[in-house]
Design a protein around this nucleic acid. Structure first.
Lengths: 207, 207
DNA sequence: GTCTATATCTGGATAGAC
DNA sequence: GTCTATCCAGATATAGAC
């Protein structure tokens, strides 16, 4: 019996337990479909007790949204930082996609909850999450901008638009990804190849 | 006063009016946030009257989801059919993206409602929409398969995965598209260029 | 085909005991 | 810090008049 009481009962205590339970439920069922009573049950407490830790349902959502974005941002930043100084553009690009998809698909209910419910929450909650979103988007824009300045990414590419295409394609994987049919990092490399090279057959190719 | 009563009052009558109002509201605010009272008010009737036309809220949703997919499917199919026999692979690909984005972004609350709320509706409603979805996916897969068989799309590309990337990127445009900053078809062509050519600078390029 | 009125349920949130 | 009990608003859905 080396398991902690929390793990053994599949619940966690207090604030953190409520947040974890809520993130899981929101990501699975959507904002409107999850009640405070459901969250309380999953956390192993009663609904009324939630209000000792949070002022409202929206306060819970708001925190989950912020944590979710920071988790991807941190994961991608760490992987970029860990690259060697002579890393190629393909290496950098792969690190971004691997970090983003790993955080989204295999590590963290908060990130997937963010992607799924951001469009469903009240406008005030959405607005509160915007600064954290903008920070991540700015980080990606800077990265892509460097790649274009160095000549790796074609100067024809409209970067803001390309970033939207990229993030849209990555986040959409959440709807169909099945970890039993291959990991997030293999998927990231496939996506990186398609987006870097394009799908058109090269006329001089004879592989 | 050549305007019909329905147009003048910004409402439509009966079944079609309820569906139109519901599609608009669901697409804007999400499944859980839209009540029958809101739909009724937008349609110019009272909530109870809805039950003369529909058995339940879910029956309304189910019909909207199906119509939404058929609208994209029809739009894309018509554009492909209208192509000349000697159309290039780029022409075909552009027609797909233009049709999909036009139906999604500029023509039809049903399609955008589908993309936005599909993940929020009860499982039974989702399942009911699957055959129509599968038909559109199959249509796209056949099209891409032809392009690959003819040598236009590289044989390295995993088609089912590429289709998921493509649809994911296209549907995500709904979250940020602003018709005042350029139309859906210009956006489609930009996306087509990025995906066909890739973003990597060609080493022999000197445009 | 639409109305009014209402039954029934479930949601978020609060108060006070322990 | 969690409980029980409850208030109140809003939801879907129904019944019957017109």
């Amino acid at each position: 019996m080396a398991l902690s009481k929390a793990v053994a009962e599949n619940t966690e205590v207090g604030r953190a337990g409520i947040l974890d339970a809520a993130a899981l439920l929101f990501g699975r069922h959507g904002y409107g479909a999850v009640s405070l009573r459901m969250i309380a049950e999953a956390a192993g407490i009663k609904a009324g007790s939630i209000y000792y830790h949070f002022a409202s349902k929206d306060a819970i959502i708001a925190e989950i949204l912020d944590v979710g974005i920071r988790a991807v941002h941190d994961e991608v930043r760490d992987r970029i930082t860990a690259l060697r100084a002579d890393a190629s553009a393909r290496d950098v690009f792969r690190a971004v996609l691997r970090g983003h998809l790993y955080a989204l698909l295999e590590h963290g209910d908060y990130t997937s909850a963010n992607v799924r419910i951001f469009g469903q929450v009240p406008p005030a909650v959405r607005n509160a999450n915007l600064p954290v979103r903008r920070a991540y988007e700015g980080f990606l824009d800077d990265l892509l901008s460097d790649l274009q300045a160095s000549g790796a990414i074609s100067s024809d590419v409209n970067l803001p638009r390309f970033r939207l295409l990229l993030i849209g394609a990555l986040n959409a994987t959440l709807e169909w990804f099945d970890p039993q049919k291959g990991g997030a990092e293999a998927l990231a490399d496939d996506y990186a190849d398609i987006i870097l090279n394009g799908v058109l057959a090269k006329t001089g190719d004879k592989t």
